[in-house]
Each structure stands twice: as C-alpha cells, then as structure tokens.
Design a binder for these strands. Structure first.
Lengths: 149, 149
DNA sequence: GCCATGTAAATGCAACTGCATCTATTTGGA
DNA sequence: TCCAAATAGATGCAGTTGCATTTACATGGC
C-alpha cells in the first residue's frame, strides 16, 4: 500500500480547514443579520436567474449539485418562508414550476452584501489577485470536471 | 458597499467544491469498506497519540476544533462502538479520561489505507509536488492562525 | 466555611442530511 | 391499447448538528 506524501495530507487538512473557516465566517455573518443560510442564497439566485419562466426542481438540483431529496426539502423551507411559489405545470402532471416572490428577491438582495463582505474580508484582503488566480488554477486541477448533469 | 472581485467568488466556489469532492470521496470509500466516518478517524488518532495516559474530552475538543457538545456526542458514539473507554478521573470529579481500546486501535489502522488511498487518488495523482506546496502556501494565507486553543 | 463564579461534560429540542422507498405521472414499445 | 420502465417529486426514519440549558464539580475571595 502506497503511503501519501505528508504534503498531500497537509493539503487536504488546510483545504478542509480553509473551506470550513470560510463557510463559518459567511454563515455567522448571515445569522448575525437574521438572514437565512447560505444554501438558500444559491437557490434563490438560481431561481431568480430563471426569471418569469421559473425553474423546475429537477433543473435546480442539477445546477445546485444537490440530491433530489435535498432540493425538495430546501424548496419546502424556502416556500414556507414565502420566498418562492410552487405551482403545478400543465404539460407535465408530475412537475412543478418554482418562481421567486418579491420577498424572495428582497431576501436575496439583503444577503448579498453580507455574503460579499465576508468573502472580501476572508479571502480578498488576505491574498493578492495573482495568487488568487493561481489558487483557482490549482483547485481546478484537483476537482475533476463535474460529471455533466 | 464594496463588490468582490469575481475571482474571489470563484475561489470560494472552487474551494468549497474541492473540499466537498474530497470529503465525499474519502467518506464514500470508508463507507464502502464498512468503516466509520472520517470524523472518527481524527478522534481515534488523537486519542491514540495520547497513549496510556489517555486524554480529557476538553483537550480533545481543542485539538479537533469541535464544539463541546459535538465532542461529547462523538465520544458517545465511539464509546458505544467499543473503540474507547471513558473513566472518571479522581483528581477532578467533573472530568473523565478517554483511552483507546484494542478494537479502537484496529479500527483506526483499518481506516488509514482507505483514507490514504483516497487522498492519493484525489490529490496526489492530480497535482505535482511543487504545485502541492504552492497550494498549501496559498491556503495558509487564507486561513488565519488558529486562535490558540 | 460560604457563596459567586468558572469549568467539564451531558442533554432536550429543533433543524437538517442521508437513505430508501413511495406516489404519481409520463413514455416507449409490443 | 396496454404495460413495463423511466422520471418528478415527496416522505418516513435514523443519524447528526446547532443552540441553549442543565448538572456536577472546582476555585477564589470574603
């Protein structure tokens, strides 16, 4: 059995810690402002991008890389909070169309400065633009091409 | 409100995806072999390092960067699986000493090749040693010095 | 010695995730 | 047409996490 280079283990550790720290930072900022979780942001943004046409949950799950049940339940919560509407689609009795409400749009907008601020503080202020580009390049080497939704 | 550089957002996204992909890879490997979660590995390793003296839960929580209740419950599960012993300490009636059992040692040992193999496949085989070093350097810039346990 | 304060650890409750399964509907063939 | 297989989405259940609180013990000042 091959033993990994200590640098490999360290990379995994620092990668994990970094992403953990960033996530915590963003989430605690949102929570401190009484705003929903980060996962809601991505969903709201995708739904907002879909515009008046709305989006089907199965499309959403592909874009958010969430499991089907995760999407279903996330939509439950977001709908319960009044941020989206879900209505049946006539062309397919199994499906539904999700659309953002005004409140949903407002919520997403309110989340953005907090989210962005955290990223600036936690990333942008700590690393130079060229290093940032290099970091991106290296991370993309590690993460294989997403397996085509 | 300052707007973050798109590269910053992309770095956050790739960082998150990379760490998610690695975590999933390691976890699914362990699960496929009928082994416990990765979080158990770290705990078992720390406890093993403590040797015959054992370790106090509050020390463990500092080393693992876990919340107090998380540590308490992790130890519950690990103890229920027979991988550790917990006994009261005489010098401090509030505390306990955690020690690894033989079974705990065996389990940790069994986990390592799977864990290591996943790291080799997912990281080491995809990036050169010098790039790995650079990745480490960049990640350490982003993650601030841990706030001294 | 007594009490306020602090520290170690556990726990009730709500939220969330994973897994498997279920229901409803559509689709593609024989 | 009819039925097996596929697809969209929901859901029961167990496990896990976060938060707040609780229990138990220790310590320092008076």
């Amino acid at each position: 059995m091959t033993i990994p280079d200590p640098h490999t283990v360290e990379a995994w550790t620092s990668l994990f810690r970094a992403s953990q720290a960033l996530l915590d930072g963003v989430e605690s900022g949102l929570k401190a402002h009484g705003l929903p979780q980060l996962s809601w942001y991505d969903a709201l943004l995708e739904i907002e991008k879909a515009g008046a046409d709305g989006i089907r949950p199965f499309e959403l799950k592909e874009r958010l890389l969430l499991p089907q049940y995760g999407t279903s339940r996330l939509l439950d919560r977001v709908a319960k909070a009044g941020l989206i509407t879900r209505e049946d689609v006539e062309t397919d009795g199994r499906g539904q169309i999700v659309r953002l409400t005004e409140k949903g749009r407002d919520t997403r907008k309110a989340m953005w400065p907090i989210y962005a601020g955290a990223l600036i503080t936690l990333i942008q202020s700590r690393i130079s633009p060229s290093e940032l580009a290099e970091l991106n390049r290296l991370l993309h080497k590690i993460t294989p091409a997403r397996p085509k939704a």
